[in-house]
Protein backbone atom coordinates (compact mmCIF):
# COMPACT_ATOMS: atom_id res chain seq x y z
CA UNK A 1 0.00 0.00 0.00
CA UNK A 2 2.70 2.40 1.03
CA UNK A 3 4.55 2.00 -2.22
CA UNK A 4 1.42 2.60 -4.22
CA UNK A 5 0.59 5.67 -2.22
CA UNK A 6 4.02 7.15 -2.86
CA UNK A 7 3.80 6.19 -6.51
CA UNK A 8 0.61 8.06 -7.12
CA UNK A 9 1.69 10.99 -5.00
CA UNK A 10 4.92 11.13 -6.96
CA UNK A 11 3.13 11.11 -10.26
CA UNK A 12 0.87 13.85 -9.11
CA UNK A 13 3.67 15.95 -7.74
CA UNK A 14 6.00 15.64 -10.69
CA UNK A 15 3.44 16.20 -13.37
CA UNK A 16 1.08 18.56 -11.61
CA UNK A 17 1.24 21.27 -14.27
CA UNK A 18 0.86 18.78 -17.12
CA UNK A 19 -2.01 16.95 -15.49
CA UNK A 20 -3.70 20.22 -14.83
CA UNK A 21 -3.47 21.39 -18.40
CA UNK A 22 -4.65 18.00 -19.70
CA UNK A 23 -7.44 18.00 -17.23
CA UNK A 24 -8.50 21.47 -18.28
CA UNK A 25 -8.51 20.32 -21.90
CA UNK A 26 -10.52 17.28 -20.92
CA UNK A 27 -13.08 19.42 -19.16
CA UNK A 28 -13.21 21.86 -22.04
CA UNK A 29 -13.94 19.15 -24.61
CA UNK A 30 -16.40 17.31 -22.40
CA UNK A 31 -19.97 17.84 -23.46
CA UNK A 32 -20.78 18.85 -19.94
CA UNK A 33 -18.70 22.00 -20.06
CA UNK A 34 -20.88 25.06 -19.53
CA UNK A 35 -19.04 28.19 -20.63
CA UNK A 36 -22.27 30.10 -20.21
CA UNK A 37 -22.37 29.39 -16.50
CA UNK A 38 -18.73 29.46 -15.49
CA UNK A 39 -15.66 31.27 -16.73
CA UNK A 40 -12.59 29.33 -17.73
CA UNK A 41 -10.40 31.15 -15.24
CA UNK A 42 -12.70 30.19 -12.42
CA UNK A 43 -12.69 26.58 -13.51
CA UNK A 44 -8.91 26.62 -13.68
CA UNK A 45 -8.73 28.00 -10.20
CA UNK A 46 -11.01 25.29 -8.89
CA UNK A 47 -9.10 22.58 -10.71
CA UNK A 48 -5.73 23.76 -9.40
CA UNK A 49 -7.00 23.86 -5.89
CA UNK A 50 -8.62 20.45 -6.11
CA UNK A 51 -5.46 18.90 -7.54
CA UNK A 52 -3.40 20.35 -4.72
CA UNK A 53 -5.72 19.12 -1.98
CA UNK A 54 -6.03 15.75 -3.69
CA UNK A 55 -2.25 15.34 -3.83
CA UNK A 56 -1.81 16.36 -0.23
CA UNK A 57 -4.46 13.95 0.94
CA UNK A 58 -2.91 11.07 -0.99
CA UNK A 59 0.56 11.86 0.29
CA UNK A 60 -0.58 12.10 3.88
CA UNK A 61 -3.09 9.25 4.06
CA UNK A 62 -2.37 5.62 4.63
CA UNK A 63 -5.70 4.33 3.45
CA UNK A 64 -6.25 5.55 -0.05
CA UNK A 65 -9.78 4.63 -0.78
CA UNK A 66 -11.65 5.51 2.37
CA UNK A 67 -12.70 9.11 1.81
CA UNK A 68 -14.50 9.23 5.16
CA UNK A 69 -11.15 9.45 6.94
CA UNK A 70 -10.23 12.80 8.48
CA UNK A 71 -7.31 13.13 6.12
CA UNK A 72 -9.77 13.56 3.24
CA UNK A 73 -11.67 16.22 5.09
CA UNK A 74 -10.22 19.21 3.12
CA UNK A 75 -10.90 17.47 -0.20
CA UNK A 76 -14.46 16.63 0.74
CA UNK A 77 -15.03 20.10 2.02
CA UNK A 78 -13.76 21.60 -1.21
CA UNK A 79 -15.88 19.29 -3.37
CA UNK A 80 -18.86 20.15 -1.21
CA UNK A 81 -18.21 23.82 -1.77
CA UNK A 82 -17.84 23.40 -5.53
CA UNK A 83 -20.94 21.22 -5.81
CA UNK A 84 -23.02 23.59 -3.77
CA UNK A 85 -22.03 26.59 -5.84
CA UNK A 86 -22.70 24.62 -9.05
CA UNK A 87 -26.09 23.51 -7.84
CA UNK A 88 -27.00 27.12 -7.22
CA UNK A 89 -25.53 28.23 -10.55
CA UNK A 90 -27.76 25.77 -12.34
CA UNK A 91 -25.42 22.95 -13.40
CA UNK A 92 -26.88 19.49 -13.88
CA UNK A 93 -25.78 16.61 -11.62
CA UNK A 94 -23.69 14.96 -14.35
CA UNK A 95 -22.00 18.23 -15.17
CA UNK A 96 -21.06 18.56 -11.55
CA UNK A 97 -19.77 15.01 -11.25
CA UNK A 98 -17.75 15.34 -14.44
CA UNK A 99 -15.57 17.91 -12.74
CA UNK A 100 -14.06 15.14 -10.61
CA UNK A 101 -14.47 12.22 -12.98
CA UNK A 102 -12.72 13.89 -15.88
CA UNK A 103 -9.51 13.85 -13.87
CA UNK A 104 -9.27 10.14 -14.58
CA UNK A 105 -7.96 10.31 -18.09
CA UNK A 106 -5.01 12.65 -17.58
CA UNK A 107 -4.05 10.80 -14.44
CA UNK A 108 -4.29 7.39 -16.09
CA UNK A 109 -2.12 8.53 -18.98
CA UNK A 110 0.64 9.54 -16.58
CA UNK A 111 0.34 6.34 -14.58
CA UNK A 112 0.58 4.33 -17.73
CA UNK A 113 3.77 6.08 -18.68
CA UNK A 114 5.62 5.36 -15.47
CA UNK A 115 4.36 1.81 -15.21
CA UNK A 116 5.31 0.78 -18.69
CA UNK A 117 5.99 -2.94 -18.73
CA UNK A 118 4.60 -3.47 -15.24
CA UNK A 119 0.95 -4.39 -15.83
CA UNK A 120 0.41 -5.56 -12.23
CA UNK A 121 1.35 -2.24 -10.73
CA UNK A 122 -0.51 -0.38 -13.39
CA UNK A 123 -3.66 -2.33 -12.74
CA UNK A 124 -3.42 -1.89 -8.98
CA UNK A 125 -2.94 1.86 -9.25
CA UNK A 126 -5.60 2.34 -11.85
CA UNK A 127 -8.10 0.41 -9.81
CA UNK A 128 -7.43 2.40 -6.67
CA UNK A 129 -7.54 5.74 -8.43
CA UNK A 130 -10.78 4.77 -10.15
CA UNK A 131 -12.44 3.74 -6.91
CA UNK A 132 -11.23 6.89 -5.23
CA UNK A 133 -12.35 9.28 -7.93
CA UNK A 134 -15.68 7.51 -8.27
CA UNK A 135 -16.30 7.97 -4.59
CA UNK A 136 -15.42 11.62 -4.79
CA UNK A 137 -17.66 12.00 -7.84
CA UNK A 138 -20.56 10.36 -6.06
CA UNK A 139 -19.94 12.53 -3.07
CA UNK A 140 -20.15 15.62 -5.22
CA UNK A 141 -23.47 14.45 -6.65
CA UNK A 142 -24.70 13.80 -3.14
CA UNK A 143 -23.86 17.32 -2.04
CA UNK A 144 -25.39 18.66 -5.22
CA UNK A 145 -28.60 16.79 -4.55
CA UNK A 146 -28.70 17.93 -0.96
CA UNK A 147 -28.30 21.55 -1.97
CA UNK A 148 -31.17 21.20 -4.39
CA UNK A 149 -33.31 19.55 -1.76
CA UNK A 150 -32.58 22.37 0.64
CA UNK A 151 -33.72 24.84 -1.99
CA UNK A 152 -36.91 22.86 -2.59
CA UNK A 153 -37.55 22.59 1.13
CA UNK A 154 -37.12 26.30 1.60
CA UNK A 155 -39.45 27.09 -1.27
CA UNK A 156 -42.02 24.70 0.09
CA UNK A 157 -41.87 26.44 3.43
CA UNK A 158 -42.22 29.83 1.82
CA UNK A 159 -45.18 28.67 -0.20
CA UNK A 160 -46.69 27.29 2.96
CA UNK A 161 -46.41 30.60 4.69
CA UNK A 162 -47.79 32.45 1.73
CA UNK A 163 -50.62 30.04 1.26
CA UNK A 164 -52.84 31.10 4.13
CA UNK A 165 -53.44 34.79 4.05
CA UNK A 166 -56.28 35.96 6.25
CA UNK A 167 -57.64 39.27 5.01
CA UNK A 168 -60.02 41.61 6.71
CA UNK A 169 -62.84 42.20 4.23
CA UNK A 170 -64.70 44.54 6.50
CA UNK A 171 -64.57 45.40 10.12
CA UNK A 172 -65.66 42.19 11.76
CA UNK A 173 -65.51 40.11 8.59
CA UNK A 174 -62.49 38.00 7.77
CA UNK A 175 -61.83 36.47 4.36
CA UNK A 176 -59.68 33.42 3.79
CA UNK A 177 -59.04 32.60 0.15
CA UNK A 178 -57.62 29.10 -0.18
CA UNK A 179 -55.62 28.33 -3.29
CA UNK A 180 -54.29 24.86 -3.98
CA UNK A 181 -54.93 21.45 -2.51
CA UNK A 182 -55.96 21.25 1.11
CA UNK A 183 -54.04 18.45 2.76
CA UNK A 184 -54.20 17.78 6.46
CA UNK A 185 -51.03 19.71 7.26
CA UNK A 186 -52.22 22.74 5.38
CA UNK A 187 -55.75 22.68 6.68
CA UNK A 188 -54.35 22.52 10.18
CA UNK A 189 -52.42 25.69 9.42
CA UNK A 190 -55.49 27.28 7.84
CA UNK A 191 -57.50 26.52 10.93
CA UNK A 192 -54.84 27.84 13.28
CA UNK A 193 -54.29 31.09 11.40
CA UNK A 194 -57.98 31.72 10.99
CA UNK A 195 -58.77 31.16 14.66
CA UNK A 196 -55.80 33.21 15.72
CA UNK A 197 -56.91 36.11 13.56
CA UNK A 198 -60.49 35.73 14.77
CA UNK A 199 -59.31 36.09 18.33
CA UNK A 200 -57.08 39.04 17.45
CA UNK A 201 -59.63 41.01 15.45
CA UNK A 202 -62.70 39.82 17.35
CA UNK A 203 -64.41 39.31 14.02
CA UNK A 204 -67.82 37.77 13.99
CA UNK A 205 -67.91 36.29 10.53
CA UNK A 206 -65.30 34.41 8.55
CA UNK A 207 -65.64 33.68 4.85
CA UNK A 208 -63.63 30.74 3.53
CA UNK A 209 -63.33 30.98 -0.23
CA UNK A 210 -62.45 27.72 -1.94
CA UNK A 211 -62.49 28.92 -5.53
CA UNK A 212 -58.82 27.97 -5.82
CA UNK A 213 -59.19 24.46 -4.45
CA UNK A 214 -58.89 22.15 -7.47
CA UNK A 215 -60.32 18.95 -6.02
CA UNK A 216 -62.47 18.12 -3.09
CA UNK A 217 -62.46 14.77 -1.37
CA UNK A 218 -63.90 13.50 1.87
CA UNK A 219 -60.76 14.40 3.77
CA UNK A 220 -60.81 17.98 2.52
CA UNK A 221 -64.49 18.31 3.31
CA UNK A 222 -63.84 16.90 6.76
CA UNK A 223 -61.15 19.49 7.35
CA UNK A 224 -63.43 22.28 6.22
CA UNK A 225 -66.16 21.09 8.54
CA UNK A 226 -63.71 20.98 11.41
CA UNK A 227 -62.65 24.54 10.73
CA UNK A 228 -66.27 25.66 10.66
CA UNK A 229 -66.99 23.88 13.95
CA UNK A 230 -63.94 25.44 15.57
CA UNK A 231 -64.94 28.96 14.49
CA UNK A 232 -68.40 28.34 15.91
CA UNK A 233 -66.88 27.23 19.20
CA UNK A 234 -65.02 30.51 19.30
CA UNK A 235 -68.32 32.30 18.92
CA UNK A 236 -67.95 33.38 15.32
CA UNK A 237 -69.76 32.24 12.21
CA UNK A 238 -68.27 30.73 9.10
CA UNK A 239 -69.45 30.91 5.51
CA UNK A 240 -67.97 28.81 2.73
CA UNK A 241 -67.95 30.42 -0.69
CA UNK A 242 -66.63 29.77 -4.16
CA UNK A 243 -67.95 26.27 -4.58
CA UNK A 244 -67.60 25.39 -8.24
CA UNK A 245 -70.16 23.19 -10.00
CA UNK A 246 -67.80 20.20 -10.18
CA UNK A 247 -67.04 20.46 -6.50
CA UNK A 248 -70.72 20.73 -5.64
CA UNK A 249 -71.27 17.53 -7.63
CA UNK A 250 -68.39 15.79 -5.90
CA UNK A 251 -69.69 16.78 -2.49
CA UNK A 252 -73.08 15.30 -3.30
CA UNK A 253 -71.58 12.14 -4.84
CA UNK A 254 -69.35 11.58 -1.85
CA UNK A 255 -72.33 11.95 0.42
CA UNK A 256 -70.57 14.55 2.51
CA UNK A 257 -73.01 16.25 4.77
CA UNK A 258 -72.11 19.90 5.02
CA UNK A 259 -74.89 20.17 7.57
CA UNK A 260 -75.97 23.63 8.51
CA UNK A 261 -72.88 25.31 7.09
CA UNK A 262 -73.81 28.34 5.05
CA UNK A 263 -72.48 27.94 1.52
CA UNK A 264 -72.49 30.47 -1.27
CA UNK A 265 -71.44 30.23 -4.87
CA UNK A 266 -69.43 33.41 -4.84
CA UNK A 267 -67.49 35.58 -2.48
CA UNK A 268 -69.90 38.42 -3.22
CA UNK A 269 -72.83 36.31 -2.08
CA UNK A 270 -71.01 35.35 1.08
CA UNK A 271 -70.16 38.96 1.77
CA UNK A 272 -73.81 39.93 1.37
CA UNK A 273 -74.79 37.28 3.93
CA UNK A 274 -72.07 38.48 6.27
CA UNK A 275 -73.28 42.08 5.98
CA UNK A 276 -76.80 40.99 6.71
CA UNK A 277 -75.77 39.06 9.78
CA UNK A 278 -73.94 42.05 11.11
CA UNK A 279 -76.86 44.32 10.42
CA UNK A 280 -75.10 46.25 7.70
CA UNK A 281 -76.45 47.21 4.32
CA UNK A 282 -74.84 48.30 1.10
CA UNK A 283 -76.85 50.50 -1.21
CA UNK A 284 -76.28 52.92 -4.07
CA UNK A 285 -74.68 56.14 -2.95
CA UNK A 286 -77.12 59.01 -2.90
CA UNK A 287 -75.95 61.86 -5.06
CA UNK A 288 -75.48 65.25 -3.53
CA UNK A 289 -78.12 67.71 -4.66
CA UNK A 290 -75.36 70.01 -5.91
CA UNK A 291 -74.00 67.38 -8.29
CA UNK A 292 -77.22 66.61 -10.05
CA UNK A 293 -77.79 70.21 -11.01
Amino acid sequence: MATMKTRIAEVLERNEAEILSDWMKEQATALTQRPDLMKESELRQQSTRFLKLFREAIAAGNNLIDIQQPIWEPVREFIGEVSRSRAIQGFSPSETATFVLSLKQPLFTRLRKIHEGQPDYLFEDLWNVTVLLDKLGLYSVEVFQKTREDVIGRQQKEMFELSTPVVELWQGILGLPIIGTLDSKRSQLVMETLLQRLAETQSEVAVIDITGVPVMDTVTAQHLLKTVTATRLMGADCIISGIRPQIAQTIVHLGVNLGDVTTKASMAGALAVAFKRMGLAVGPARRQSGETA
Binding site: M191, E192, L195, Q196, L198, A199, K226, T229, A230, T231, L233, M234, G235
Partner: peptide
Protein backbone atom coordinates in the same frame (compact mmCIF):
# COMPACT_ATOMS: atom_id res chain seq x y z
CA UNK B 1 -63.80 33.99 24.73
CA UNK B 2 -62.65 30.50 23.85
CA UNK B 3 -58.96 30.37 22.94
CA UNK B 4 -58.09 29.22 19.41
CA UNK B 5 -55.99 26.36 20.77
CA UNK B 6 -58.88 25.20 22.92
CA UNK B 7 -61.26 25.33 19.95
CA UNK B 8 -58.85 23.24 17.87
CA UNK B 9 -58.44 20.70 20.67
CA UNK B 10 -62.19 20.35 21.09
CA UNK B 11 -62.73 19.89 17.37
Amino acid sequence: GMQPSVAITLV
